[in-house]
Structures are given as C-alpha cells and as structure tokens.
Design a binder for these strands. Structure first.
Lengths: 216, 216
DNA sequence: TAGATTGTTAATCGATTAACAATC
DNA sequence: TAGATTGTTAATCGATTAACAATC
C-alpha cells in the first residue's frame, strides 16, 4: 500500500468502480479479476490494480477480488458510512427532482431539510423532507451542523447564498448554479455540476465527427 | 497550429474558457494575456497557450488576446453556431427543470420538443416547448432529424429508450439516468451526467480533509 | 524603439501500462 | 502442485510546464 497523495484521476474513478460493483452484485457475480473488470469498464487490468493499491490490498493472488468485499472497501474509502448530512437550498424543479429522485440515502447521505423563498411551498414537505423559509437558513445551519449544502437556487442569488452557508460552517457545496464559486473559505470544498460544460463537450464531439466524416 | 488529435483534457477545458470569456465580456474586459487569464482560472499561462494553439493562432504577440475574438473562436470550435437540434425525453421534475431553466438557446442548441408518457402533460407546452406522447417518439424522430436526445426518464426504461433513439439516427445522447449506456452504435456519442459520481467525490474530499485534520 | 506577450520547441512531471516475483 | 492473478517495481507514454525566439 502506497501512502502518497491520491491523484484526482483515481478519486474520480472510485464512484465508477462503485457503480460497476453494485451492478455486479445485482447480477450475483461474487468474484472478479482485474482483467475481467477492466474489460467490462474499458480500463486496463494494470490501472485497476494500481488504483486499488493506493488504498490497500483488496484482492487475493490467484483468485481476484471478492465483489462484495471490494464494494465495501470502495464505499468506505468514499466515506459513505459517515452519513454526511445534507440540506438543499432552492426547491425549484431541479431541487425538487433531486429531493424526490436522487436517492441520497442509497448513496450514504442524509438529506434532512430543504429551504426556499416561495410562500407556496414553505411549510410543506416533499418526499418526507420539510421545506423551510430561506430566511431561516443561516440560523438553522448554526443550530444544526450540516456537512453539505446542495445549491439549486437561481444564479442571481447563488454567490450570496454560497457565502452565507460557507460562513455557517458547512464543509461542502454541491453547486448546480453554473457559476464559478470562488469562495476564499479554505475549509469549504465546492463540487460543480456544470450542465453546459457537459452538453458543449457533447456538441464538440458531434461536430468533430462531422468534419472527420467529410475527410473519409 | 498543430494537427494532432485533441486530447480530452483540452476538450473539457474549452467550455470552461467559454464561461470565463463570457464573464470577462460581461465585465467589459476587452483584452487579456495568457498570464492574467491563467491567474483568474487557476491554470498556467503555458497551458492556456498550448490549449489554444491546438486550434490556431488567436492572440497577438505583445498584446494578448482580444476577448470577444477569442470567445468567438472557442464557440466556433465547440460547434455552437451549428444549432444542433435537441429533444427531451422524460418530462419529470428534472426534464422540466432543463426545459424551463437550462437555456439551450444561449448555449447554441435548438430545443424543439419534449416527450413523456403522462396523459396529464401530453399536449401541453412548457416554456413554449410542446410535449408529445412518447409512443410517437420513434416516428417523430424519423420525420424530424434530431442531433441530440436528452434522456431524463426513469432508470427502468432508460436502456430501452436509448436504444430506440439511437436506432432513429440521433448523434448524441445526453444521459441523466445514472446508468451506464453501453450502446454498440458507433455513430452515437453518449455524454453522461452522473450526479452520484459528483456527490461521492465531494464526500471523499470532505472525508479526506477530516482524516488529515486529525494528523495536524 | 523597447517592452510585452505570443506560439512553439524542449524539458519535466505524472499517469498509465507492462512485466514479473510473490503467493493463493 | 500447477495455474491464475495479485501487488508492485520498472518502462513508457502523454500532458503540463518552462524557455525562448519571433514579432506585435
């Protein structure tokens, strides 16, 4: 087992391994070699063994990996057992979609409340999650230590909200607002979902295939 | 200008440049050097110049880059002028959110229709986009050549829908269903938004900061 | 012109892949 | 035991960074 700093590339592959392993469990596969796993995931066996070896020795020589064990290890590395508490700020369609369909619990997260400014939904609950008034957010966070805030508010108030919650001691912001949050709070990690980056990349690949078609 | 294959890393940075340049235009900055751009984006000047040099010579020695020109070049590289046609399949909260708030037009895409199975919304329109019966999707796509399908359906029908639209000649699938779409249609590019991968990575970084705090 | 900054070549760094001894 | 497959060291490959001549 190495002790060096884990590269981002490795970290970003961990959730992919998790999904694949869950899929294997669903299909009742109970052991797999790095060779077979690599084939199914489009990675080399070497890379898979290197990735896991950053964290420990999870396999058995001559046998491969026990799927459920490996799944547990990956889940542990990702901190899924910690049950990070989560609050959603902004209950428009997107916030609503995440509350109703994302499955925080299945991913090991504990969604406890939502906040919005609209009188129509304040006081209601969505899939069992209570919706409170955003005006109370700051106070609420101070009384209820929260690990992660999901930011699904309109762009116009995004920066302000982010700064507010960062000041209340949250440890991560899952940012859906498509703005660059340059918080200078060192303890607060920002993870962005930039929808447009993803769609534009797709557009690039399609446009590229067009031009290479032309050459053929 | 190099002619070699463009690496994925470069391609994924292009939308980030675009966002930054739009921001600079908004703030009425009309020229910028690779040094200053790098400082603002957290990249080295070398990397920025290398990235752009894959596509042409967009700067002026001794001056830097004209922001609006560079923005146009990046937009062109991404194919934003092509006006790819888009259809959304699945109008739950997430599909609804994308129709109402994503801003396809601003990103150069032409959203023309949505499809769903719910009698409640078939025949209505959302932000001017008509919602049709999913049963008609296949026929509709054959009559209306479509570049991109946004897949915001429940997981249970995701694979089936993906195969259907791939057979109808779409060129890209923007997949929000959190399943791995292994289409063996070579002409169809799949771009995934894996919400859970993103949140799990955030959880990892938070968990990691915990353990390194312990060492301090 | 002198200063600034590009585009590009060369050097470095890091990530991926290959190889293989260890061992189940 | 023999075969399979790991964990890890070494080799390769590719991406990032540095350096600098070209030139606006």
């Amino acid at each position: 087992m190495k002790k060096e700093r884990i590269s981002n590339n490795v970290i970003r592959r961990l959730p992919m391994y998790l999904r694949k392993l869950d899929d294997l469990i669903y299909h009742e596969v109970d052991r797999i070699s790095s060779g077979e796993l690599g084939k199914q995931m489009g990675l080399t066996p070497s890379q898979i063994r290197q990735d896991f070896s950053c964290f420990g020795e999870f396999g058995q020589q001559g046998y491969g990996y026990r799927v459920t064990d490996l799944r547990e290890q990956v889940a542990r590395i990702l901190g899924m057992h910690k049950g990070f508490t989560v609050v959603i700020v902004g209950v428009g369609n997107l916030g609503h979609a995440l509350i109703a369909n994302f499955g925080f619990k299945e991913q090991g997260f504990n969604l406890v409340a939502a906040f919005d400014t609209s009188a129509d939904i304040i006081g209601t609950s969505i899939s069992g999650i209570p919706v409170y008034d955003s005006a109370l957010l700051s106070d609420w966070l101070k009384r209820n230590p929260t690990d992660i805030v999901v930011l699904t508010v309109p762009r116009s108030i995004a920066r302000n909200m982010a700064e507010t919650v960062a000041d209340c001691g949250v440890r991560g912001i899952w940012n859906f607002t498509n703005i660059e949050l340059e918080l200078d709070k060192p303890g607060v990690r920002v993870e962005n979902i930039h929808f447009s980056d993803s769609l534009l990349a797709l557009g690039y690949y399609i446009a590229e295939s067009e031009s290479s078609d032309g050459i053929k």
